[in-house]
C-alpha cells in the first residue's frame, strides 16, 4: 500500500445468509487500487464483482477482512462523498429534467444555487449533453440517459467513480461510442475508476488493470496490468497487444470456471 492507494481491500469476505444456507459472495479478496487507475472487474455472474463494488461504496458490509477508501473506512468515505456511483440502469427521475436530475445530488449536498447551475452546465458539457438540460428523460435515448447518469455522478467532484455495468443494457454500437467517451473523460478528469463489466473487449479497451474474478466462492483469480498506451483509438482493438491481453483474460475466466461445470 503506497501513499497513492485510493482503495485498499485486505482479506475481504462477505457471506450472505439465505434460506438455502450461506453464499460466499466474496472470499479473501485483497486488492489495492492506485490513484488514477482505471480498474475493470470481470467475471461470470455470481463472482462477486458487483458485491465488491458495493462494499467499496458501503452499500454492503463485509463479514470479514478490512477495506479502506481514501485511507478511511468505506462508511466514512461514503459520508465524505468520496465517490460517484453509476448503476446499470440510468435510474433518472422521470419527473425531473436532465438538468434537474444532475442537480439532485447537489441539492442533497447543499450546494448554492449559482454553483449548482455552474456545475450542471460543466458536467453536461463533459458528457456531451450540453443543450439537453431542459429535456425530460423519456425524450432521450438509452445511451444519452446513461450519459446523464454519469454526469450526475460527476457533478459533485468525487475523485472516485464506481461504475456497475453502466453500459450493459446498451447495444454494441452505442457501447463502443460511450467507451471511447468514457476514456476521454477519464483522461480529462484524472479520476480513479472502478468498472464492473462482463464484456472482455470492454474491459481490455478501457482499463489500466483488469481484475478477473470467479464464482463460488467469489474471489480474484488474476490481475492483469495492461500494456496498452493511454491513448486508445477504437481500432486498437485489432492490434496484437490488445488481442493478447484479451486472450489472457479469457484464459483467466476459463480457469476460474474449470472445476465447476
Amino acid at each position: 500500500m503506497t501513499t497513492d492507494t485510493v482503495i485498499s481491500a485486505r482479506d475481504l469476505s462477505l457471506t450472505f445468509q439465505t434460506g438455502d444456507g450461506s453464499v460466499h459472495a466474496l472470499q479473501d479478496v485483497t486488492l489495492d487500487v492506485e490513484k488514477g487507475d482505471f480498474v475493470s472487474f470481470i467475471g461470470p455472474s455470481g463472482c462477486g464483482k458487483t458485491t465488491f463494488l458495493r462494499v467499496m461504496a458501503d452499500l454492503e458490509h463485509p463479514t470479514g477482512g478490512t477495506i479502506t477508501v481514501n485511507g478511511v473506512s468505506a462508511e466514512a468515505a461514503r459520508r465524505d462523498r468520496a465517490y460517484g456511483y453509476v448503476f446499470q440502469a440510468a435510474g433518472l427521475y422521470p419527473w425531473r429534467t436532465i438538468g434537474g436530475n444532475v442537480r439532485l445530488p447537489l441539492e442533497i449536498m447543499g450546494f448554492g444555487k449559482a454553483e449548482q447551475n455552474e456545475r450542471i452546465a460543466r458536467v453536461l458539457e463533459l458528457v456531451d449533453l450540453a443543450g439537453f438540460e431542459k429535456k425530460f428523460p423519456w425524450q432521450l435515448s438509452g445511451g444519452m440517459q446513461q450519459r446523464a447518469s454519469i454526469a450526475r455522478a460527476l457533478a459533485f467532484d468525487a475523485d472516485i467513480l464506481l461504475m456497475d455495468e453502466p453500459f450493459g443494457a446498451l447495444d454494441e454500437i452505442v457501447r463502443d461510442h460511450l467507451n471511447e467517451q468514457l476514456l476521454k473523460l477519464w483522461e480529462r478528469t484524472e479520476k480513479t475508476i472502478c468498472f464492473v463489466t462482463h464484456s472482455i473487449p470492454e474491459a481490455v479497451y478501457l482499463s489500466t488493470r483488469i481484475v478477473v474474478m470467479s464464482p463460488r466462492p467469489g474471489r480474484i483469480t488474476d490481475v492483469i496490468e495492461s500494456p496498452l498506451p493511454k491513448e486508445r483509438p477504437l481500432d486498437i482493438r485489432d492490434t496484437p497487444e490488445f488481442l493478447e491481453v484479451a486472450h489472457r483474460v479469457r484464459e483467466g475466466l476459463r480457469a476460474g470456471h474449470g472445476y465447476d461445470d
Binding site: A57, D58, L59, R78, R79, R81, Y83, G84, Y85, F87, A89, G91, Y93, W95, L104, P105, E107, I108, M109, F156
Partner: peptide
C-alpha cells in the same frame, strides 16, 4: 437502486422522503 443512489449521496431520511418517495 433509487434508494441506494440516495444513500451514496448521504441523504437524510427527510431528503429521501421529499426528493424520492413523495414524488
Amino acid at each position: 437502486m433509487q434508494l441506494d443512489l440516495l444513500k451514496t449521496y448521504g441523504a437524510t431520511r427527510a431528503q429521501v422522503f421529499w426528493k424520492l418517495r413523495l414524488p
